[in-house]
């Protein structure tokens, strides 16, 4: 009996040490569609590989790569100083696409005439100085201001360009969401919402407004983004540890290949040259 218990104990200890060839990727839900799509193709080509892709946000990817919980991270903003110190050059940042952060509003608001705002107006909304859509030419209803978790890359880029500082507070915010998916559904389910979204997540219920700059309305179209006209844009990157395995390196190469570029375009972003 005692021996049996001992064996049971031993076998339970030895279980977690078993591991197949695996590649875990996590991080920004903005980069996620590209990598998920690429992974789908890649799995068909390499059947022996266990490839998992999950979200979490840019901040999470840095922490996870640093802890060795994942092989590859996805990030949709530049590394912060604090993060650079943590990583101490042990990780390469590899760009795979370009993207714009769209200012998205609910369909009702858009159809009521709010199709463009200046950066100052957007900032005033997020600071709580403008609280009714009427003040910017919309319907007479309060504004549901959707903020994002502070670790999210989309928020970093938005806050830097619109509010002036990547960690800026948004005292006008009504609720906080996490992933692009969550933000998208919060905007779609409301008739008075404004939020920030990666362009790949726009649809008929969640429409991007143009940003007024020097009298011109600039939409986050692919043309405006690649010409550098649209102000809230960024590169989407992959975090690759220097001591990565061959398999990991091969997958990142695949992301940067011609085929990877096609996937980037197909998902709705712009490839990097």
């Amino acid at each position: 009996m005692r021996r049996l218990l001992f064996i049971l104990l031993l076998s339970s200890l030895s279980l977690p040490t078993y591991a197949a060839e695996r590649l875990r990727i996590a991080g920004s839900t903005t980069v996620l569609p590209i990598v998920a799509e690429a992974a789908k193709l890649y799995r068909q080509l390499h059947s022996g590989l266990t490839l998992t892709v999950s979200g979490g946000g840019s901040g999470v990817s840095v922490a996870s790569v640093n802890r060795g919980h994942i092989e590859v991270g996805m990030i949709s903003r530049p590394l912060t100083e604090r993060e650079q110190q943590q990583l101490q050059g042990r990780v390469q940042v590899i760009p795979i696409a370009r993207d714009a952060v769209a200012i998205a509003v609910s369909r009702v608001v858009y159809e009521h005439g709010v199709t463009q705002l200046t950066r100052q107006q957007i900032a005033a909304i997020y600071r709580g100085e403008i609280t009714n859509w009427r003040e910017v030419g919309g319907p007479d209803s309060p504004i549901l201001v959707i903020d994002k978790e502070p670790s999210r890359g989309t928020r970093h880029v938005f806050a830097k360009v619109v509010l002036g500082d990547e960690w800026a507070r948004a005292p006008g915010a009504s609720i906080v969401t996490g992933s692009n998916n969550e933000g998208q559904s919060a905007i779609a389910n409301s008739d008075k919402a404004i939020g920030m979204l990666s362009t790949a997540w726009l649809n008929k219920q969640v429409l991007a407004i143009a940003i007024m700059q020097n009298g011109k309305a600039i939409t986050p179209s692919q043309g405006n983004v690649s010409a550098g006209l649209y102000p809230i844009q960024r590169t989407l990157d992959i975090l690759l540890p220097n001591n990565h395995s061959e398999t990991t390196g091969a997958f990142v190469e695949f992301l940067r290949s011609e085929q990877g570029g096609d996937i980037v375009r197909q998902v709705g972003y712009l490839p990097v040259q």
Partner: peptide
Amino acid sequence: PAQSLTSRIGREMGEASV
């Protein structure tokens, strides 16, 4: 809208460096 201790832990634990 409000916040709870669990919801905050759930949203922020992943990003906070140990």
